[in-house]
Design a protein around this nucleic acid. Structure first.
Lengths: 208, 208
DNA sequence: CATATACGGAACCGGTTAGTTTCGGAAACG
DNA sequence: CGTTTCCGAAACTAACCGGTTCCGTATATG
């Protein structure tokens, strides 16, 4: 809570003898996310993060005013570097399945763990909830939404189906499954959601 | 810290001079659940619970060996008293909508908040996760499952639809919506899940 | 009324952790 | 080689909280 100045950016030009500014931000944030995924926000200590990043605790506090700020920043940065090209296999099911590359699934699993670790904080911080949504859920939902929309436009699915809602189904089911059943994000489950919920719910097009 | 044995909740014969045994268990557990729903497990302190129940902290520790045991016990007890009769309106949609009484919805909202408050603990305690699932999710899923099964048996929905999976859809979507968007459990949303996901995904019977 | 029991309240103890300070050392540069 | 600046490590402070102890009181029994 002690709000000292954050970063006035007083001196920027490389002064007399110096390396550079804080180049270690990425390692620190990665360490923070890892610890977060492993033990959750409340049990995560700043020392743990510092130790994992091989940094001094003071370094963290020089850069972020509090644990909460560090986490918030790390979560926000985590969403960057996405924007893959949409798959285009010709069928909605093919497109959806194409999303389930091992890489993507593994990524999602890690993000899911981070999210679960933050769950109790999320409930009290709309700001953090928004960051999480933006960084983790929204990009995925956007892809699914686009695939559904395209399928609708080419008449593959029902013209009146709720694309917005359907695009959130798989994330939702994965989240609650992970939360309550301790199951990792798993390809087989995602397939059953696609084939047992999304595809049938999307219908078979206007021609029926 | 570790969740060990639960608590037998036993009591013996009324001794010489005494009122009765711990009659205040219900108030205490209710207080615990309320605090849990409001601040989450980690920020919930035993003092808060005692204060809200107008009890001494010592009283809590006479009855439960630890904070974790209190919470576990309270969660387990919370699942009792359900077993409503299945609605029977003749149609699957009618049955599902009939579940959405204000009372039920409000109940679900409270339980949801408790669950979110426990989220980070759940991730580290399969035992607690199981209790939550059993007390909160399973009863609801069971009802939906039964309704779907009945609809399938009378040929109202596709004979090959995945009842098990579909029965978990609405809870899942409510959970993630509450978690990431701070929305309370809300009748309108549940209706859109019924009409936009569950019903269409269940299909229109073997005659198609 | 005497006694026994459990209660609410408050003080207390010990461990843990967010946040601070200090210090020796290493990099870059003149 | 000296200077400047930041870093990692570790010691330190203050607050908080789980859990314990103690005490005055209410209540029911006999």
């Amino acid at each position: 809570m002690t709000q000292l100045d954050s970063a006035p950016a007083t001196q920027q030009a490389v002064r007399p003898g110096r390396k550079r500014d804080h180049t270690r931000d990425p390692e620190i944030m990665t360490a923070a996310m890892d610890v977060l995924a492993e033990v959750g926000y409340e049990r995560m200590t700043v020392d743990m993060v510092a130790a994992r990043a091989k940094a001094g605790k003071a370094t963290l506090y020089r850069r972020w005013p509090s644990k909460a700020d560090l986490v918030l920043d790390a979560v926000s940065c985590m969403g960057a570097a996405k924007a893959g090209v949409l798959p285009d296999t010709g069928s909605l099911r093919g497109d959806l399945v194409a999303l389930l590359s091992p890489r993507t699934v593994h990524d999602a699993d890690h993000k899911l763990k981070v999210m679960l670790g933050l769950a109790s904080v999320i409930a009290h911080s709309p700001e953090l909830a928004e960051s999480i949504r933006e960084a983790f859920l929204e990009p995925r939902a956007a892809v699914t939404r686009a695939l559904l929309q395209r399928a609708k436009e080419r008449g593959e699915i029902a013209p009146d189906c709720d694309v917005e809602l359907l695009s959130t189904v798989s994330s939702s089911m994965v989240i609650s499954r992970a939360m309550l059943e301790h199951r990792p994000v798993d390809r087989a489950f995602l397939l059953s959601v696609i084939d047992g919920v999304i595809i049938p719910a999307a219908g078979t097009g206007p021609a029926r």
